[in-house]
Design a protein around this nucleic acid. Sequence first.
RNA 1: CGGGGCGUAGCGCAGUCUGGCAGCGCGGCUGCUUUGGGAGCAGUAGGUCGCAGGUUCGAAUCCUGCCGCCCCGACCA
Length: 575
Amino acid sequence: MRLSKLVGKRIKETPKDAQTTSHIFLVRGGYVRQVSTGIYTLLPLAKRIKSKVEAIIRKEMNSIDGQEILMPVVLPGELWEESGRLQRVGPELLQFSDRNKKNMILGMTHEEAVVHAVRSDVNSYKQLPVMLYQIQTKYRDEARPRAGLIRVREFTMKDAYSFHTTQDCLNTYYQQVHEAYDKIFKQIGLKNVVSIQSDPGMMGGNTSHEFMAIADCGEDTIFMSPDGDYKANKDIAQSLLKHEYEEALPMEKVHTPGKKTIDEVAEFLNVPTSKTGKAVFYVDADDTVVFVVIRGDIEVNEVKLKNCLNIEEIQFATDEQIRQIGCVPGYASTLNINFEKVRVVFDLSAANEPNLIVGANEEDYHYKNFNFSRDMASASENIEIIDLAVVKEGDPCPVTGQPLILKRGIEIGNIFQLGTKYSKSMGCTFLDQHGKSQHMIMGCYGIGVGRIIASVIEQSNDKYGPVWPFSIAPYHVHICAVDSKKTEVKLAAEDLYSKFLDEKTEVIYDDRSEKPGSMFNDADLIGVPLRIIISPKTLKRNEVEFKTRDGSRKEFIVLEDTVEFIKREIDKFRV
RNA sequence: CGGGGCGUAGCGCAGUCUGGCAGCGCGGCUGCUUUGGGAGCAGUAGGUCGCAGGUUCGAAUCCUGCCGCCCCGACCA
């Protein structure tokens, strides 16, 4: 490729819309052009990188017996009605009417579509297990796209779906996919990817992992133990709180006039907030009140709450709703309430901490020395005790007890065990050895291609631009012809370029008569791993200069040996 | 969806408060000089000042409405 013809111009100034490293370099390097919020055209350089990423993914998916298919972007709404997700997903799902007023959607994920294909094509245990995958455009009507390719509305995703006769078979295959993902990210050249336990969210199912590219600009928060043995998304991370042993003291009513919040009560009674029990009230979609008690210094993790209670929507309760279950807002506790009207949940912290301050369910009064095991014993059948705590950096790791470390990550892939959620709702069955109809057991597995490109830049760059790993670099060799108005430079550069083309080397050639500084800066923005510089200076000695983009090597090579030399360098990357 | 910011040449911006010739730098094109980390000189092209309406002799500038984009938050397979 001649740089003079390459579409996607490099720019010197940082565009004002770009804030994160990857976004800045994608724009400055002429890789992408924004069309609308969260919608981008990939220009030639980015398209080449994307194709290489896809080839690596495709190879590994094929190696675990994946069969590539292509499902439609536009799907009939009725297919999503079958699974029940049409109503559940919300405004992220873009819907519209076709000319016959039929409700259509743009696919944001393809469980429904793949089940539609499999249920009519796979009927026997003899055909199972099977995995189908595609690399295709997804559309999600994101509320707030951001940071270039990191959160977009339209993007390319590899999505794979496996179908099994038994849970054991799914477990084994899930592990295989996990290993395939590790290989993919390693081949792509991502330096720091971790797989963590995650919340399955709207996908449903139980077991799931996210693959996070560690990067400061990442949107996801991860907690890890110092040794890396424990790692989890903040939504499900746990911590091991220590509770100092104390003798349970007799409960004592105290006057706390006008002190409603935890901070006010703790200050008034001169105790740390960790010695208080906080009452937090939610209502679910049916207006059932959920009464959560948690230690005053800890926040309620609403993702955990939703998962543990198996409900999809929660909101804070109003004061009126709190009063309806017999509690006094600001002075609420679980003492003397009617458990029939309310679902009571204690966080482990509040259940285990001795001698807490809690509300008295009476205006301007609290109780001292509440002890869950003693004071709630009579109601224990009506109370759930679960972990609902928001984990903070430095909290003790649940496995090792060491302080947890907080990291930020970009979610570049995920794997889910779906179970029979979709096969049951959509009637995806097979006949087993006994001729009996069974629901298939499913897994699904995604990789975001655009996010990988952005993540690679985030993890591999210097102040001049991206440093592409060889495996996904847009080209392998970049020729800079310095002072190319001089005939000897022009001839040598053109000759070298055509020889590289003959060898099918992926080469980009800066054939412009720019100043060296412009050429080098552009070359850095393009980030090609191997660089050849030809100039009057080097040609005087019948040499060219060889440099690597990462700055690790710089040497001079006899002009005639250049093509062979580069071939050997490229071969090194291929082992 | 809430909060904040921005919209003027391809890009970055000034001009808006206080209404009166549409400007600067970079980039583009032509020519000459220059060639190892974003050169110099000369010439030249490029504008619906986001859109619509209003006020005014006169609007990029004031008023009203709308649209778009960025950031923070909520949300997020």
